[in-house]
Each structure stands twice: as C-alpha cells, then as structure tokens.
Design a protein around this nucleic acid. Sequence first.
RNA 1: GGGCGGUUAGCUCAGUUGGUUAGAGCACUUCCCUUACAAGGAAGGGGUCCGGGGUUCGAGUCCCUGACCGCCCACCA
Length: 881
Amino acid sequence: MPHDLPKAYDPTAIEDHWAEYWVREKLFAQPTPGKEDPLGGQSPFTILLPPPNVTGNLHMGHMFEHTESDILMRWHRMRGERVLWIPGTDHAGIATQMLVERQVVSEGSTRQKMGREAFVERVWKWREHYGGTILNQMKRLGASVDWNREYFTMDERLSVAVREAFVRLYEQGLIYRGAYIVNWCPRCQTAISDLEVVYDEHKGHLWEIRYPVHDDSGRETGEYLTIATTRPETMLGDVAVAIHPQDERYTHLHGKKLGLPLMNREIPIILDDWVSREFGTGAVKVTPAHDPNDFALGERHHLPSINVMDDTAHINENGGQYAGLDRFAARKEIVEELTAQGLLAGIKDHVHNVGHCDRCKTIVEPRLSTQWFVKIQPLADKAIAAVRPDAQGNKAIRFVPEMYEKTYLNWMENIHDWCISRQLWWGHRIPAWHCPVCHKITVARQDPAKCAHCGSDQITQETDVLDTWFSSGLLPVSVFGWPDITPENRADFDTFYPTSLLVTGFDILFFWVARMIMLGCWFSNEVKMSDGSDRPLSESVPFREVYIHALVRDANREKMSKTKGNVIDPIEIVKQYGTDAVRYTLASMASPGTDIAFNVARTEGYRAFANKIWNAARFIFMNVDRAAEVGIAVDPAALGTMPIMGPDAPLEARWIVSEIHATSASVNHALENYRFDEAANTIYQFFWGSFCDWYLEIVKLRLDFSESADKFATKAELTTLVSVFEAALRLLSPFMPFLTEEIWHAVYDGAPPAKSIALTRFPQASPAGLDAVASGEMTLVQSLIVEVRALRKEIGVEEKAAVPIEVRADAVLRELADKNRDIIERLARVSRVHFVEQISAGVSKHHAASFDVGVVYERTIDVAAERERLTRDVAKYEKGL
RNA sequence: GGGCGGUUAGCUCAGUUGGUUAGAGCACUUCCCUUACAAGGAAGGGGUCCGGGGUUCGAGUCCCUGACCGCCCACCA
C-alpha cells in the first residue's frame, strides 16, 4: 500500500526531505512579471524578510518571526495571491568587523597591520564561507521564501542604490559634515548613533571640586566656587563654569574668572538659564568637547572646545601631565591630586545612567568629532505623514498592534539628525573625496579623478563607511531595482512596491522600520507611477502595514542571554520535537501585547497533536484500503474543495462538515487580524476535540464493509471522512507545513493534483456549509452522552459494561435520540435506551437543561476490593498531611 | 521626569462591541493498554478575574483611583 504510513510519527524523517524538496523544486520562487504574465490580475502579497546579520545564528526570536511570516505567506499563497517573500543578509558593519578582527588577532596579526584592503578582502572571504549559516537554517525550517532573490546588503546592485541615495541627499543639501558631539565607542573606535547607546543605571559618585576665584588681575582671591561632576577627568577640557543668572548665592561672581585646577588656565564664569540651581552646587563646569549640553552651552556663549581624549579614550596632548592615561586612570589620578591640593570639597554617592555601546558594552564617551549627518527633518515630516491619520482617518501605513503608532510618532516628532558615518572598514564607503588644495569636498556617483572645485588630482576618498542601517533602510526600494527604474526594467517595482507587510520586532522599530519609512517615502516618491503620474504618499511608503511581534523569553519569562545560559537553541528543540511542533507552539502563544514565555511543555503537547493527526491519517488510510478491497473508492474529484452535505446525510456528517466550515471561517478571520494564537487554537480544537474525539468515533459505526452493508451509504460516509480530513490538512498546512505535506501526498496515493499542498487552495467557508440545525442536534446528543458517561463513573459502572439508560425528554429530543440511538449506544456504552415519562425510582440520574437521564445499574460491591481501595486512599491522604 | 503594556486556575495564557454557570493547554486526581493514537481515551478537582470606589438591570470587560511587575523614551552636570 503506497499510502501506508509508519506507525510512529517521526518528524525528522519527513522534515529534511520536504525542506530539501521545496528548495529544489523552487516552489516559492516569484519571477519578475513578464509581458505575458500568467499571474496577471492577482494581487501581490509581499514581505521583505528583516535581513539577519550575516554573522548570525538562528535564535528563537528569528524562528518566531519566520513562523509568523511563513504562516502568512503560505496562507496568502493558498488564497491565490501572487506572493513574494525576499530573503537576504545584512553585512552588519560593526558586528562583522569585530568578529573577523578577533580571528585576525588570534592569528597574531591585527587589522592595522593587514591594512584596509587586505582586511576587507578577508571579511569577504569569511562571508563566503560562513555567511550562509542562518539562511541554511531557515531552509531547514521550511520558510517559503524566494531563494532566487536572495541578496546581501553589500551586493553590487544594492551598493549602487546606497551610493545614489547618499549623492542625492547630498545634492539636496540633506547631508552635511561637521564637528559635533557624538557618542564614541573607544573600543570599536567609531562614532555610533544615539540609538546604539544603551543606558544602564550605575552607582557612581558626584565629585565636588573647588575652583579658585580670580580677581581682575588673575590672582586668587581666596574664594572658591565649587562645582559638581560625575566625570572629573573631563575638567582637563573645561572652558568655563556656568551658573544660573538668578542664583543669589553667586550674584557677586558675575563677570569673574576662575582658575582651572591642574591646568593653570583661566576660565570665565558664564550665566545661563539652563543651569539647575537645585542640582549639585548650582555651578556646572563646561566641557564643550565632551558633553552634549556643554557643547550647546559653548555654542551659545562662543566658547572654544578642547578635546582631551583620543580615539581610544586616552587623554591626549591637551591633557597636560595626564596625557597618555586611560580615562579612568586619569580620573583616579586627578581625584588624588585634587585631594592633595585641598581642592576636593566632597564625594557624594550618585546614581545615574551611563551609556554603553550596544555592540560591545564599553562605556561610551561623548566626544567632539567630525562626522557626516543626515538633516533628518524633511524626511521625518514625510514619515510622520505616512503614519498619522489624514483628514479622512486613512493611514498610509498601519501599525499592528496599534499602540506602536504612538511610540513611532513620538520618536519621529522628536528626532535628531542622524550620524551616518562610522570609522570602520567594513561597509559602504562614503562616496566623498577631500581636496588637500582647496579643502572642499567632492561627492560623486562615479569615482572622481579630480576635485570638482579646484581641479586638483590630489583628492583622497573619505575613509569612513556608512551606518549599516543606511543601506538596510533602503532595502524596500533597492531590492526592486531602484534607482535603475527604466520603462523596460520596472516590472518588479511596479508589481511589488509598496510591499504589503513588514513583520518585525519592537527592538528595531527605530533602527530599521523608521529609517525604511523615511528613506522609502523620500526616494520612491521621485519614481513616477507606471502610468507616468506622480506617486502619492500612499504609494511611496515601503510597506502598508507593520506587524510588531512579541519577544521570546524563556519559560520563566527571563530574557534569553548567553551570559545567563538560558538560551534555547531552536535547532535543538526542532531536533527533539520537530519543526511543526515548535512552529505550532510559537503560533499558539503569539498573543498580541505579551511576550512569549517559551515552554517546552507546550511543544511536547503540540508534538502529541502532530502525532494525533498522524494517527488519524493512519486510521483513515486503513479504512480506505479496507473499502478498496470491497470495491469502494473515494472519487479524488470530491477532494480539494470544501464538502457540503445534503439534509439527508447522517447527523455526524452534517455536523462535522458544518464544523470545518465554521473553523475555516474563524481561522481566516483570525489570520486577517494577525491572531495566530486564535487560529492555531481553533484548528487544534477542531481537529482533536471535534474531528478525532467525536467524528472518528462515530464514523467507526458507519464504516461497515460487510456483504450486507449499504455500500452507497458507506461510500458516502467514507467520502465525507476523507474530504473533511483533506480540507483539515489544508487548513493546518500553513502552521504545520511538513506533516501536512507528507500526509497530503499520501492521501492522493502518489498522484497529487499539485506539487505541494502549499499550492492548493485554503479552505473557505460558505454559508451553505454551515448547518445550525446539525450543530444544535449534535450538541444535544453529545450532552446526553457526556451525562451518561459521568453517571457511569459516579455509580462505579465498569468501563466495559454496557448498561441500559432511561431518558426523559420532549418529543423532539426523543426523536433525535431515537434516530441516533446507535451513536449513543456506542459512545456511552449503552445497551438499551428506554424513553420514559419519569426516571424510575432508585435509578441514579442527572438533570440537564432539556432532559433527564438515568443509568440502570445494580451495583455489586466487591467488599474486599473496595476496602483495599479505600484503605489505599486513606493512607495516601494521611501521607499527604 | 514622560509614555506604554501587564496583573484571570499550581504554571503559561485566551476571554471579541458589557449579557446565562469565566475558558484552553500543561500539571494534578480517578478509572481504562476499547484493533488510529498510552505522544491515547473517559470522568473529575482547582478561580475573591491585583486592591478600592463608581456607572449599569447586569462589570473580568467601561470610568476614576491605588499597589505591584515589565518595557520604551528623555538623560541635570
């Protein structure tokens, strides 16, 4: 028998096979629409996979995200849409450079020794060898992406887009270069953006330092002004001390100067409203080169900036005797020296937030440095308009859950210019050239030979590269060919842009989602519509919806982290329970607004569910084979749609068909609202609770293959059985693609109507399929059976014994019960159903809403056995106390 | 400092626009290896829906308020 399944469900045996099959057969490839487009007219459903870092390994968060996306992709595909899911990897500037640099160091070299070119070459080699890990893991997990369109953010094609975007923004006056305070990571030795700084509460100190007051001729008056600081080492770069103009304590110091201890420099006292009179001593040292607030203060008061640290946060030549010391060593020495000179007024404990590098956790040093910035306001304005409801209440981009809309808008409305330069080697090099002659900058699409301003051929290219998010922010336009949108070459862009949906995590809402909206709206807006008209904002957005998923935590709701050692490797769990069971776990726990506490107990449960389905299949196939032996076969034409029953069909058939219609209606509805949990739970309930527990048990009565049986009726019931099951497989397929693929092929006994269940149609409910009468009747029959079963337990009827029951009911229910007598007898183990006006005296009975039922049973008590059982119970309870 | 989310069974979570007796999975108890499945079947036990007030015929659900937990943004030296 070709569709004979092995006795036990073994996920590993089937999953590898189908994963490989799907990729090999290119089942999910979505080619660029041609002139003769076979899918013309089908609405597109497009998702851009958030590209994982090329250095990455698949973790639970990825698997969760991919599960949700894949369910949606498979569902839309099965609804007959033109679906496209594009995979790729991100070059991940800092992360990748760090990783390869560590390797180089372990080999006794350094990136500096190698030189830029050789090092970058080395990174490319690394990427060739190891860069595919995470995508291979995705393949194994069955993600239905189009592998033909796989990209890497540093591919030639995408690099062209990055360069074009930079040049255009520069030409539009939206990129500038200048010296500002930026967050500097001394370990990565690069600037990082505000977003890449994570703040941690830190128990530190507030050092109070006395600055001597000078008279007009520069001599100490003997008075001191005490300032408070958390970073004493920055005093080396102090250029002033600020006080509040209305601070009466210091009125007499207005216009005076102070001596800067340790540096023999005189600095002014300045007045500024920004100073808080309540904090510290009410006097604040001003170090424009090392603090953003001080920098602003310096600008306002036209003060110089003295940068006292180098790229590694060691004190530089501006730090006098402390030059060469690490910032924290310098802090220690400076505090000691101040103490020795009697200038330390006090040390107070102080809890404050300290910024760390998101990548390497090193304490960030705010530091004056020359960087490239995007003037962000014009882009942000568009990005706000794209999300905020217009006068009609329409939004070009919709957030799900909706609350993120507020978070997004709040951030976008308070945005600062974006520092896009990084002092790294791995990344898109900024297309700007410096001229040593006229000191002007040449920015160009093609590498220039000469300075555009003075013609000098001495120009050198900027060494900085771009923030990784600059290139990933362009992906929605660049993957579809931008900027090369020509009449002959715009089918992808016209068909797939804007994409339909973005599925991603909250953690990259600002990093990536916001940047895509800004850059996507900005650049696509310049691309005319295919009919030549101007592109409205609603067609400029990179995606129409953003679905923000939850975070996956461990079973104790702790964040998974390597240091805690509580990381659950999805690949390991998959090996143990199968991809389908893990996917189902994630889907069923994906409730909006709450993080997922991943618990393998749930996965065990869903492996059991998969096993249940497997065994239902075995049962069905067994009966199909038995039927074949007596010449009964199910017409394959009855499969692949949704069955509809006539009024004369048996109750259980009408009921189960109605159930699957109701289930598919509810699953479709749930998926439309991204309620993966509802969808998964509904299917689970249908399959286990209705189909297996009730329908399969009843159908055993009908599958009579004996000579005397009504072959027509048997065939009808078998057809219902197989067609409902086949529809259930399709319903389940987006959630458990492997198991359903395997069984679906078996249903068709090696001659399936398509290459994959993924290419069939998703079950859709129709009004004709819903049978309220059958539902109501079945509910009554079920409750009668449940009451009898409960009664049997109560009065201690042996499991195997069939007993007579008495039923008191109205005429309608009596007729129903009579008609379905065989069901009641089998499922409740009843030997005879007596309809009575009143349950006989002495018979144990239950009252239900519409009937009374009694079980007729003379209980013979085995005194010895009963005593033993009760003694056991007593002993157990006593032990429990 | 500003904002957001959460608090329902032992655990993890559902609970649509307010409407009968608040649900599921896991765990637990009892019985059953009934020829699809013991990764199973059947029947059970278990809840002051965080506290307090209010609206209502009716509140887990709406309003106010408090507590606790979590997250994000800002970053006064």
